[in-house]
Design a binder for these strands. Structure first.
Lengths: 187, 187
DNA sequence: GTCTATACCGAGATAGAC
DNA sequence: GTCTATCTCGGTATAGAC
């Protein structure tokens, strides 16, 4: 499925993913990406015609990562446990969240303000994630409430990421994910 | 309390607030702000030594706005009604949220990635807001749980703003604020 | 395919006339 | 205090040698 790209291109994408996450996509220059990936600046344009194309590559990479995570969560026995595994994934990420926020949420927010075609593509990451969460609630027998419950859960996770980022405090993630896990078990 | 500034300075701040909200602070140029405020570009530097100072002015403006809102919410009779008034404020804002996300959340996220001294100041907006929400839960008799409940409520509001922004869908705000108002009344 | 050199533009910021 | 003209730097992107 995932296309095979050259080693250098892969390094460039990895560098772009990291730098855009830490400093923002707009604030990250091609020169920085090239340096981090140990590729000469001019060479970048052999792999990507524009900076926007790098943005798209970042989205693809994130989609792959999330897809892999969902496969792991799916291994949990019950829908409740799968949802808890998802919440646990956020918990495990708490230190990064406190430092740079949610990789998907902050990226989406930035791109949608900047405008351009990558924004819509970035939203697909959320769409896939939301659909997966909804399907778990559905399996739990929540029927037509499933969508609203999925929005509620993903909202809580996104929101606490925003707060943890603003306060640089992983403890907020700890208490909120605890609360959410209890809530899931109580359903 | 609030210092009195010149008419032109005020126009510049208003323009900066709007443009930074719509397009992001980093992506907004001083030339755009000057044009929107109908002030010559060179003149901007009479009022602000650097672009960072404009960022600080944006924060001050937001702090004033939120403070005014809280005074209105405080007029509601009970703590529960005050919290609902706060949630209702988000609801009333749903179309802007769907277009550009939460003004405070997106601004904070961006500034914390960019680094610099304004970021910490921007976090104070959240800190004040969170403290106010916590005080309402305290008045409700929630004691030491108040902090966690405040984080939970503000997280939900921030999170749904992120999702509504990503999907450009105000309906998400409608369903989630409904859910939160019911939750508050059930406490 | 890979890399160097550089074009070109728009950004923030400054100088100084009025 | 106000505005025009301009400087400088760093950004994306390109041209073309190897």
């Amino acid at each position: 499925m995932a296309k095979v790209y050259s080693e250098k291109r892969s390094r460039l994408v990895s560098a772009a993913v990291d730098l855009a996450y830490q400093n923002g996509f707009g604030a990250t220059s091609l020169a920085e990406i090239a340096r981090e990936a140990e590729v000469p600046l001019g060479n970048v344009f052999y792999y990507f015609k524009t900076k926007d194309e790098i943005g798209e590559a970042i989205v693809e990479r994130r989609l792959e990562q999330l897809s892999a995570q969902r496969q792991r969560w799916a291994e949990a026995g019950s829908p409740k446990n799968r949802l808890c595994a998802c919440v646990q994934g956020v918990f495990a990420n708490k230190d990064y969240l406190a430092q740079s926020g949610c990789a998907v949420g902050t990226f989406c927010s930035e791109l949608h303000k900047a405008g351009g075609s990558v924004a819509a593509r970035a939203t697909e990451i959320f769409a896939e994630h939301l659909a997966w969460i909804e399907s778990q609630f559905w399996a739990l027998g929540k029927g037509s409430d499933s969508r609203g419950l999925a929005v509620h859960l993903l909202s809580a996770l996104q929101g606490v990421s925003v707060l943890a980022h603003a306060f640089h405090d992983p403890a907020l993630v700890v208490t909120e994910t605890d609360r959410l896990k209890s809530w899931i078990q109580s359903l």
